[in-house]
């Protein structure tokens, strides 16, 4: 791989006002983003938020409606075919040929990527080993489990050792152990200097990323490291309340003036408040009145999910009046 290509002021991906419309529907709304070289960048958002659409524009298979961007230093509208030589892409569907064997799938993609003859065999063995398919190299792909297919698909997508990898919900439909192994693999690749751009809607996976972008209704609503998001993007404070009957405690707590929002969380409640110091005594008092014993109540560091929910809610609050004016 040419070295010059994957640096554009040190950024693997740069996006400026990127926009994609399908008719009246705005799938991606003026997204600005810079992804540094060698970073694991996570794109977090609910289904239909525009994650896949963005990634497809970056891979040069979907043309943006407006805006611009570069991937590996190439323009996404004018140099799509150049980009394709420098990226690996894997979609949530693990697109393999099920009627071909493991080895035949690898041979096919290594031919398409024109891996030099000298490296071909080494790359093939690397993929087979990495995916743990030594025993199954001559089995048809159709019989493999989800985790195997996932790693084989990743292997086929990075046979040509691209400096940037795009993974679109790579762990959907895969068991937890395979997911964990898959992330080990991603760390390994990132350690070798590969930029990884990954979309997910799993909060725990988002924690593994170096940096995160929160996308909601086509808009990038928050950007930062997981730590930054938890501290900077959370204006309110979060209180965890552990009690025996959280369902019954939920409504009375939400009605308190000091509380903005409460939600069931595991075996307790997460309560969002302007100031935890004011809310804790109020909650304690209210629950005592209702004769609901509290096991523990304390301010905690918000989880990514808290941040995500709070960001979406504040986004909706901002949008709602505008929408009323519009309609």
């Amino acid at each position: 791989m040419e070295l010059a290509t994957d640096t554009h002021n040190g950024f693997a991906v740069t996006l400026r006002n990127l926009e994609k419309r399908f008719g009246d529907f705005v799938a991606v709304n003026r997204v600005n983003l810079d992804v540094r070289k060698g970073e694991i960048f996570g794109f977090l958002g609910p289904n239909g938020a525009g994650k896949s659409t963005t990634i497809r524009m970056l891979c040069g298979i979907l043309e943006p409606t407006a805006g611009s961007g570069t991937v590996a230093g190439f323009d996404i509208t004018r140099q799509a075919e150049e980009i394709k030589k420098h990226i690996g892409y894997m979609s949530q569907r693990f697109s393999l040929y099920e009627d071909l064997t493991v080895a035949e799938n690898i041979d096919f993609y290594s031919g398409i990527y024109r891996i030099p003859a000298a490296r071909k065999n080494a790359r093939k063995e690397w993929v087979i080993e990495m995916a743990g398919l030594t025993e199954h190299r001559n089995s048809r792909t159709a019989i493999l489990s989800g985790g195997w297919k996932q790693r084989l698909a990743l292997g086929c997508a990075i046979l040509h050792e691209p400096p940037i990898i795009f993974l679109d919900e790579p762990t959907s439909g895969v068991d937890p152990i395979s997911r964990r192994n898959f992330w080990d693999l991603i760390y390994q690749l990132a350690g070798e200097g590969v930029t990884v751009f990954v979309t997910t809607h799993y909060m725990d996976e988002a924690e593994y990323c170096d940096r995160l972008g929160l996308i909601y209704r086509g808009e990038l609503i928050a950007l930062g490291t997981p730590g930054e998001l938890k501290s900077r993007f959370m204006a309110e404070e979060v209180i965890e309340v552990l009690c025996d009957q959280p369902q019954e405690a939920l409504e009375p707590i939400e009605q308190l003036a000091e509380v903005k929002h409460a939600a069931l969380f595991g075996r307790g409640l997460h309560v969002v408040a302007e100031r935890a110091d004011d809310a804790i005594p109020a909650i304690t008092a209210r629950l005592k009145e209702l004769n609901l014993p509290v096991n523990r109540i304390e301010q905690i560091l918000p989880s990514l999910e808290d941040v995500f929910v709070s960001q979406i809610e504040s986004h909706d609050r901002k949008e709602a009046p505008q929408r009323e004016v519009a309609s």
Partner: peptide
């Protein structure tokens, strides 16, 4: 249908 088209068109073929 099986999604390999999407995979093929992101290659330099």
């Amino acid at each position: 249908e099986i999604g390999t088209m999407e995979q093929i068109i992101v290659t330099p073929i």
